[in-house]
Design a binder for these strands. Structure first.
Lengths: 157, 157
DNA sequence: TTTTTGGTTCTCAAAGAAAAGAACCAATAA
DNA sequence: TTATTGGTTCTTTTCTTTGAGAACCAAAAA
């Protein structure tokens, strides 16, 4: 039953740093470590048990974390004929979608701020002007980020 | 001692929505509401007690939240001659700095990912290529976001 | 039919985050 | 000198998050 993935101390360190980085963006510790492991591991597709044993997690923690990551679309799993196990992989492809989501957050915030602006007293022109400027910046970003993305696509060839 | 700020239900709603939005970016509930209040309130500079009473917070919660926001540079306070009270205001100016911080996060992440890439096995060329691409995208963004900012500045006149 | 595998779900304990309330304190006012 | 103001700090409580462990369960294997 030795399902553990063998990792160098450098690899373990990177997993932790990736973990912390994910925690910063709001993902809980266990799922964060799993994402890290699935980024660093030489083997791309890992079974429930090898994840569990490599990271010293309980079954419940592993199960919940994997399901959360599946729901978030951050990982996926593959299966093999004649093997009931699922093998989980980092869905690295999803970074484009993530970027998009991050950009959409800007839209949401600027929408709220516009509503705030509409409802503000006219007695505070300077503040309102500042607010207007922030909104304008966000709108501008939103308009031009897609173009920037296309530019990057082109720059690749 | 009626220090409460008078707010319409629309204004209260906006404060809550701004609050939730701030919570999403990692700021705790009380400070989040205070930021919302200081964004919506017709009066720009509010005293400790009017914040406390308007948001129904305890003294300790108010004190801690205000100090956290001061440390984060999200608010500032002004004083008036012959008045010991401090009047707190939203430091709306700081959105540029915040944007910069957000951009810097991209740099940090791409730095970790590069290190991961250097330490990956060569046996997984497709995965590695994807990773390389994600890194390239982040680097590109980082290079061009400052230009985009300048463009926006110009577009204002 | 019974056992094993590959998990899931439930219950509980531990730890941490938030906030309340009271005690406290320095500076000003009386 | 004493009282008040404008907070800060400490202690306690409450709520939430996280994860462990055990019970559970469906599908497949024996």
């Amino acid at each position: 039953m030795m399902n553990k993935v063998e990792l160098s101390s450098k690899q373990r360190e990177l997993i932790e740093r990736l973990g912390v980085s994910h925690e910063k963006s709001g993902i809980p510790p266990a799922p964060s470590r799993i994402l890290g492991l699935l980024m660093v591991s030489p083997e791309l597709a890992l079974s429930f048990d090898s994840i569990r044993e490599t990271l010293n997690l309980s079954k419940s923690a592993t199960s919940n974390a994997l399901n959360m990551l599946l729901t978030m679309n951050r990982i996926e799993y593959i299966t093999q004929p004649g093997d009931r196990k699922r093998y989980f992989k980092n869905r690295l492809v999803s970074w484009r979608e993530e970027a998009k989501t991050a950009f959409e957050r800007i839209t949401q915030v600027s929408a709220i701020l516009e509503e705030v602006l509409e409802n503000r007293t006219k007695e505070t022109p300077e503040f309102n002007e500042n607010l207007r400027e922030a909104i304008s910046f966000m709108r501008f970003m939103n308009q031009h980020l897609p173009e920037l993305y296309l530019e990057w696509e082109k720059s690749k060839d």
